[in-house]
Design a protein around this nucleic acid. Structure first.
Length: 509
RNA sequence: GCGGAAGUAGCUCAUCCGGUAGAGCGACAGCCUUCCAAGCUGUAGGUGGCGGGUUCGAGUCCCGUCUUCCGCUCCA
């Protein structure tokens, strides 16, 4: 694995040149922070999904998979907290170039005024020997009354402006209150702009009747709203998990670093439903399990690390990231969160439907707690790609670029190569190809010198090259060349399928 | 979003002070045949990111715009 900016650029160039990742709508100059997966990229991505899905759903009897829709009832996002957390009116100070949430600036200002009042009241209470509340109630000080009225007036304007989504008023309020930038101390503000991190669209073709709906900003809610359906129909017993792979959308202000942060991205996640009070035990369990999954890919040590969160999200009582050493540094690849009963309780409240589980062991009903594993598929793709990209100098001084992919993830498992076109070698190679292509992804190439074809396969990470030569015609043996060692062995044609399948199997990790 | 830099063939780049674009590699077709890229012949591929302006004339100067990169900012 290469390091540094230079390496990252090479990997991006390689990804494009060999059909892994293209910029979206490239012939129209592209669309910012949106990328398409090409012929090899989509194959690699699908293989990552399959590996994850099998290790979750197929290898665990108590985990099942679903595929929820991207569109969901708008109230889902009120219950989840996204409508509040993802809608920010922002304002920039032109002098300091700092950006603030306009509502926070105003709230801070009100807090300062309130602080003033409290100090006045406190003084009064000491003077008259009253409690704080008594002093407040008497409103002895006219300045206190004036300030309280002022705050109330601000709050009214503020709430009204926000409710009507009147951003000009919000700005005017900031100007009227003479709020200054804490950094530059100036009042040179830009207009207030609404940044909505959720994409929205209308459902219903008649404009007046249409409801605004969102493209889901996370896949988790599709699992939570189906919790009861799956638990009942699958007769699931706690603890159990629901897994899902799917697209999510976030209108990031700045989306950059190739496919690391995109506006449209794919998540692979599993929500594990447990008994309240056992969440930390399961949290630790899944942290270890998930780390094992990553290291089972055979990546070198030291590429992964845990990062425990100090600042917890509104839904979590414990959270850690698994970080990966990307070419641009250690960054989040996966999150493991103890989400408590936040989501199910919220949906219970907003929907009015009971989302509880009767535990036959304890004879109790409760809203289950949740431990979540959520991994960015595109980030996983980037992690594997960047760690697999190797530039080698061979003994003879020549260079080659190899994608050192785990064989089971490689887009193409075997390339079938006749040493040359004539003498019936091509026909024989076709025969071999036809016998293999139903079992794993194969590629056939007869153009160019054999060495060149090996290098091309190296560049897309094909683990095995099957070469048909003159000896094949005599004794039905072929050579099988291994990508990383470049070593060849001669085996019988009938053995090829078994040998390749064995070496690309999940079981042999 | 702000500041800086860049955008010419699939890729890497050239084209001097403004005079209607060129190479290497790659691709494709054919020849050759030698198990680790760069043998031979031929062919295709560009309204110079896009739009506008200045000029007799713009890849080249100016403005706008899109995209990318670097820094800042943002990222429950």
């Amino acid at each position: 694995m290469l390091k540094g900016d230079d390496a990252f650029k090479k990997i991006i160039a390689h990804a494009k040149e060999y059909g892994f990742i293209f910029q979206s709508s490239e012939i129209y100059d592209g669309l910012s922070a949106v990328y398409d997966y090409g012929q090899n990229g989509s194959a690699l991505k699908n293989n990552i999904k399959e590996y994850w899905w099998k290790s979750m759903v197929q290898f665990h009897e108590n985990i099942v998979g679903i595929d929820a829709a991207i569109f969901m009832h708008p109230t889902v996002w009120k219950a989840s907290g996204h409508v509040d957390a993802f809608n920010d009116p922002l304002i920039d100070n032109k002098d300091s170039k700092k950006r603030y949430r306009a509502d926070v600036l105003i709230e801070d200002h009100m807090a300062k005024l309130e602080d003033k009042i409290n100090k006045e009241v406190e003084k009064a209470s000491k003077r008259f020997g009253e409690t704080f509340d008594e002093a407040m109630f008497r409103k002895t000080n006219p300045r206190v009354v004036a300030n309280q009225e002022k705050i109330e007036a601000i709050r009214l304007r503020f709430v009204e402006a926000l409710e009507n989504n009147n951003l000009e008023d919000v700005k005017k309020l900031i100007e009227d209150l003479e709020i200054v930038c804490p950094v530059s101390g100036s009042r040179n503000w830009t207009d207030v702009r609404q940044f909505n991190l959720m994409f929205s669209t209308q459902m219903g073709s008649v404009t007046e009747d249409a409801n605004q709906i969102y493209l889901r900003p996370e896949t988790a809610q599709g699992i939570f709203v189906n919790y009861l359906n799956v638990q009942k129909t699958g007769r699931m017993k706690i603890p159990f998990g629901i897994a899902q792979i799917g697209k999510a959308f976030r209108n990031e202000i700045v989306a950059r670093q190739f496919i690391f942060r995109m506006r449209e991205f794919e998540q692979m996640e599993m929500q594990f439903f447990i008994r309240p009070g056992e969440e930390l035990k399961w949290y630790e369990y899944w942290k270890e399990e998930r780390m094992k999954w990553h290291t089972s890919l055979g990546m070198p040590n030291g590429l992964y690390r845990f990062h425990d969160h100090d600042k917890l999200a509104h839904y979590a009582n414990a959270a850690a990231d698994i970080e990966f050493a990307f070419p641009f540094g250690f960054k989040e690849l996966e999150g493991i969160h103890s989400r408590t009963d936040f989501d199910l309780s919220a949906h219970q409240k907003f929907s009015g439907k009971k989302l509880q589980y009767f535990d036959p062991e304890t004879n109790e009903s409760y809203v289950p707690y949740v431990v979540e594993s959520s991994i960015g598929l595109d980030r996983m793709f980037l992690a594997i790609l960047s760690q697999s990209y190797v530039e080698e100098t061979l003994e003879d001084g020549s260079e080659r670029v190899v994608l050192n992919l785990p064989p089971m993830l490689a887009p193409i498992k075997a390339a079938i190569l006749p040493l040359m076109k004539k003498d019936g070698l091509a026909e024989k190679a076709r025969e071999v190809m036809d016998n293999l292509k139903y079992d794993f992804m194969c590629s056939y190439e007869e153009k160019d010198a054999i060495g060149r074809r090996y290098r091309r396969q190296d560049a897309i990470g094909t683990p095995y090259c099957i070469t048909i030569d003159h000896q094949t015609l005599e004794d039905n043996t072929v050579t099988i060349r291994e990508r990383d060692t470049m070593q060849q062995e001669r085996i019988h044609v009938d053995e090829v399928k078994r040998v390749v399948l064995e070496r690309i199997s999940f079981k042999n990790r």
